[in-house]
Amino acid sequence: MEKIGFIGAGSMAEAMIAGLIKGGVFQPEQIIVANHSNTERLQELSKKYRINTTHNKISLVKDVSIIVLAVKPKDIKSSLDGLQEYIHDQLIVSLLAGITIDTINSIIGRQTAVIRAMPNTSAAIAKSATAIAASENVTMSQINKCKALFEAIGICKIVDEGQLDAVTGLSGSGPAYVYFLVEAMEKAAVEVGLDMVVARELIAQTLLGASSMIASSEKSPYQLRKEVTSPNGTTEAGINILKEQDVEKALVSCIKRATERATELKDMFTEELVLSHSKLELNGQSK
């Protein structure tokens, strides 16, 4: 019986676990979760999903065919330390922003089957937009298996690893941009006299409807917008303000800057790893 193990027990790990069980991809007894010391969190997940939990990462790695790295990026080295000799044919799926496939292989000490994934927080309701990138050691069967994991919590697209920074800036951070927009819409709704509760429901349904139109229609967003925008009407009046305020430029700059920051963080993590290795080598030579 194939098993999947999660190293890290945070919100993204839980979102995936919930989606995998609900979608029938894995049964609860096929899922193992480990963290360093938070017993209360593991008990919570065990009770809620009836999955297996442990503090022993070695036993987890030896027992599963898929290892999901769901820790904080800064903890990648400490999370993998001590596991290197037990990683052989398992597929490693990393959810860590900024940690490259080369970095993971460097910590393990050899080339392994690694897939990097960039889901977003909408995974919690099985609506994630996820992109994955695979190392050369990953088989097509493993890619398809990984794709099925993320399709259980939304949609999944395959990209080159070099495109993952752009994915991070677009869909990884994307929910926050939408929430920012909703904050502004709520503020405007109150200022024009609407009840906040009513306004939130109207805004949520408006976004849901527009999103569904984009997903289901063959028309471009431009065409859909033009169909709503009658000459000299209310929509055109509002759109003209967005154009005057150069909102389009601001949104483009927003995504570009988030993408640049993803690249900066990736470079920072890589540099930190190189420095860490250099210190270890120097310490070894001095003994």
Score class of each variant (00 low, 15 high):
Ser216Ala: 13
Val182Asp: 03
Val197Glu: 14
Tyr179Lys: 04
Ser211Leu: 08
Met196Leu: 15
Met140Arg: 10
Ala188Ser: 15
Leu224Ser: 04
Leu194Arg: 04
Val228Met: 13
Ala199Arg: 03
Ile143Pro: 00
Ala152Met: 09
Arg225Lys: 13
Ala184Gly: 13
Leu149Asn: 00
Arg225Trp: 02
Ala188Phe: 14
Ser173Val: 07
Phe180Arg: 13
Lys187His: 15
Ser217Asp: 11
Leu224Met: 14
Leu181His: 01
Ala199Asp: 11
Tyr179Cys: 05
Glu191Pro: 01
Leu207Pro: 01
Glu191Met: 11
Arg200Met: 03
Val197Ala: 10
Lys147Pro: 01
Lys147Asp: 06
Thr206Leu: 08
Lys157Val: 06
Asn137Cys: 09
Ala133Asp: 01
Met213Arg: 04
Ala176Tyr: 04
Tyr179Thr: 03
Lys147Val: 09
Tyr222Ile: 07
Ser171Val: 02
Ala184Cys: 11
Ile143Met: 12
Glu191Ser: 14
Glu191Cys: 02
Lys157Leu: 11
Glu186Thr: 05
Ser173Pro: 07
Ile143Cys: 11
Ser220Gln: 12
Thr130Ile: 02
Gly172Val: 10
Ser211Asn: 13
Phe180His: 13
Pro221Phe: 10
Ser171Tyr: 00
Val192Leu: 10
Ile214Ser: 09
Asp160Tyr: 08
Glu183Ile: 02
Gln205Arg: 10
Pro175Met: 06
Ile155Thr: 12
Ala134Cys: 12
Glu183Asp: 15
Glu218Met: 10
Glu201Phe: 07
Ala184Ser: 10
Phe150Pro: 00
Glu227His: 06
Lys145Asn: 10
Ala152Asn: 04
Gly162Pro: 08
Gly169Asn: 01
Met213Val: 06
Lys219Thr: 06
Leu202Met: 15
Ala148Val: 08
Val159Leu: 15
Leu170Ile: 13
Ser135Val: 02
Ile132Cys: 02
Asp195Glu: 13
Thr139Phe: 02
Ala166Gly: 07
Ile153Leu: 01
Ala199Trp: 05
Gly174Met: 08
Tyr222Asn: 12
Gly169Glu: 00
Val192Asn: 10
Tyr179Gln: 02
Glu218Tyr: 03
Glu186Leu: 15
Asp195Gln: 10
Leu181Tyr: 04
Val228Ala: 14
Ala210Met: 04
Ile214Met: 15
Val138Met: 09
Leu224Gly: 04
Thr168Gln: 07
Glu227Arg: 09
Val167Ser: 00
Asn144Pro: 03
Ala210Arg: 05
Val167Asp: 00
Tyr177Ala: 03
Lys157Pro: 00
Lys147Ile: 14
Gln223Trp: 02
Lys187Gly: 13
Phe180Glu: 11
Arg200Ile: 04
Ser220Pro: 12
Asp195Asn: 15
Leu208Pro: 03
Glu186Asp: 09
Asp195Tyr: 08
Ser141Leu: 11
Met140Pro: 02
Thr206Lys: 12
Ala184Asn: 10
Ala189His: 09
Ile214Val: 15
Cys146Asn: 01
